[in-house]
Write a protein that binds this DNA or RNA. Sequence first.
DNA 1: GTCTATATGATGATAGAC
DNA 2: GTCTATCATCATATAGAC
Lengths: 197, 197
Amino acid sequence: MPLATSSPALPDTRTRVLDLAEALLLERGFNAFSYQHIAKELGVKPAAIHYHYPSKDDLGRAIIQRQVRRLRKWRDLPRVAELTPAAQLEALLTVYIGHLALDRRVCLFGALAADFRTLPPAMQAELQTFNRELTDWLAQVLAAGRATAALTFVGSPAAKALQILTTLAGALQVARVHDETPFRAIIGQLRLELFSS
Amino acid sequence: MPLATSSPALPDTRTRVLDLAEALLLERGFNAFSYQHIAKELGVKPAAIHYHYPSKDDLGRAIIQRQVRRLRKWRDLPRVAELTPAAQLEALLTVYIGHLALDRRVCLFGALAADFRTLPPAMQAELQTFNRELTDWLAQVLAAGRATAALTFVGSPAAKALQILTTLAGALQVARVHDETPFRAIIGQLRLELFSS
DNA sequence: GTCTATATGATGATAGAC
DNA sequence: GTCTATCATCATATAGAC
């Protein structure tokens, strides 16, 4: 029984389609990737993709829904949920730094926000949910961090959470337009302000 | 001589095309607006637009180039250049608040950054120029403002300028996805931090 | 259950009419 | 100098083959 053919098994086609679509979405935006891009990569005809995801609306929604599930899972992971607030914030920064390392991928929110009005309504609603949950989580982290004097900021935790997430999404966009330098400067600035002891 | 037909004259067709294209770009993104959208609005056939701007590349470049000219003109206007640094920063915020008021338009950078890799190379270069000039200007304003203790921040003026502009671009995107509330919270947060006396 | 042949429409662009 | 008729290409999507 050859080991190479056993687990971890290749993801099934449905998952491979979703993975490719997500990568293309973050690379080109929702309106600039097509079923043809996915099909070519998989060695099938574009119409084959419609079997797995009947419309582009379905495909886009699936991408965002999976990201919402990932967020909830990540947030509730013992190795994240049991960290101190300061370490949780650092873990969040690490996620964005990971995007940078992955060919300077923008985050899902940053990829969809500008084209928001061209998105199918169902996708719009999913994206709002995703961003709201992420912001609420960070606001709670910030409140807890300030209570123990581990994090420093003025204003409300909710406003600060919005500002930080907006900055992070924007920082990945700037990295795309220029290079990693401005991204690293912005991350450094955030650390300097929030972790100032 | 009827007053209504005299000045201010309607912009010529070339300018009207550019204005419409810019509005569509900020509304839908570069890949989701077409010559047909512009043509329908002007009551001509799509191909007519190609007379004024042979390719979409030309049209996109013209939009960014005009914005670069606007930035330089605005920056050097006596009523802006002669302000105190704190007032110059407030003037910048006013520009972004103006975008919000105009049907929550994102800024040019925010509209193009995510789709950057799908843009014609000439447009990419123009966008880099625009963002660099804006960032350099703000960095200099911040440095001057801190020198007179009118503005407060830690870190380098260059990093702070990047962070602020990134936040502003992102704030308009968040406003698009949700509503004006998060945008106003972020602007309030920026004011609270920078103008803290 | 999975994929292909095909339809229909939108896109950016050219060549040429007025 | 300005715009229209037309084109080749690519888009998403349906119907049906295996």
